[in-house]
Design a protein around this nucleic acid. Structure first.
Lengths: 128, 128
DNA sequence: TTTTATAGTATCTAAAAAGTAACCATTGTT
DNA sequence: AACAATGGTTACTTTTTAGATACTATAAAA
């Protein structure tokens, strides 16, 4: 229901995409942003909570190790940039790259959908 | 850069959301659609590849067990509906629920971003 | 009577992701 | 001399996720 276009056409396009690019484009995206802490890390960096220690204080449940691992993956995937200052004590500043910035509209939708379809309904059903 | 609104304001809103709903709304969404096979399963169901066996033939790398597990999770999360026909051999038809349908625009964006930022660039750099 | 079709389950194993706790280097401050 | 601050690393354990394989039921067709 509610599919305007011809199904088999959309179908072919998708399978073509998968064959053409060697994988599902949605899965490819989710692989980059789907770590347990990555959405929040990306979000905080996007609002200039951009130092390791600051991030840790905002996400006390994310261990140092996990923070490092996730930041390194985000860096390797080209979503964040890591700038090291040659100072003591060490100073490192994380920023979003262009690629990272381009996630903004996506995150906006994911966030809205999550509130409307997951978090708000959950509160209504489990009201203790 | 390229942040029009006041940062600390957006920041407060987000943290408020997390506190209000007890979790990150983006992570909440990704939890539902982030399984290894879920995007493809949802996609195929959305184009009426809607029986267990059909799905399996479309995704030969997804084992029977994984197919079942993921379908059950999608069902539990209210994204797909499972209709069993009392026939022999068994007949089961999967369809998207309203909630599942509401993912369409999200998937469209995720797919486009994945093609532009992940899959296409990858092909250019690793051209053998 | 054996095979085919469908839609699974059950059990076990392997691999990946995440968590815990201790450690490190350097400079400035107490 | 000891401690704080920063931004990590290393080694190990636990938990979660995914994969492999064998098994099930039922009716119809060959």
């Amino acid at each position: 229901m509610r599919i305007e276009e011809n199904n088999s056409e959309r179908f072919t396009n998708m399978v073509d995409n998968i064959k053409k690019y060697g994988g599902c484009p949605v899965s490819a995206t989710l692989k980059l942003i789907g770590g347990k802490w990555k959405p929040m890390i990306l979000y905080f960096i996007s609002v200039d909570v951009n130092r390791f220690g600051q991030l840790q204080r905002m996400m006390p449940d994310c261990s140092k190790r996990m923070m490092t691992v996730q930041l390194r993956e985000l860096e390797d995937d080209g979503l964040v940039h890591r700038k090291v200052f040659a100072e003591v004590p060490p100073k490192v500043i994380y920023t979003l790259t262009e690629k990272g910035e381009s996630l903004r509209p996506l995150f906006s939708m994911l966030s809205q959908w999550g509130i409307e379809q997951v978090l708000e309904p959950k509160m209504k059903t489990s009201n203790d």
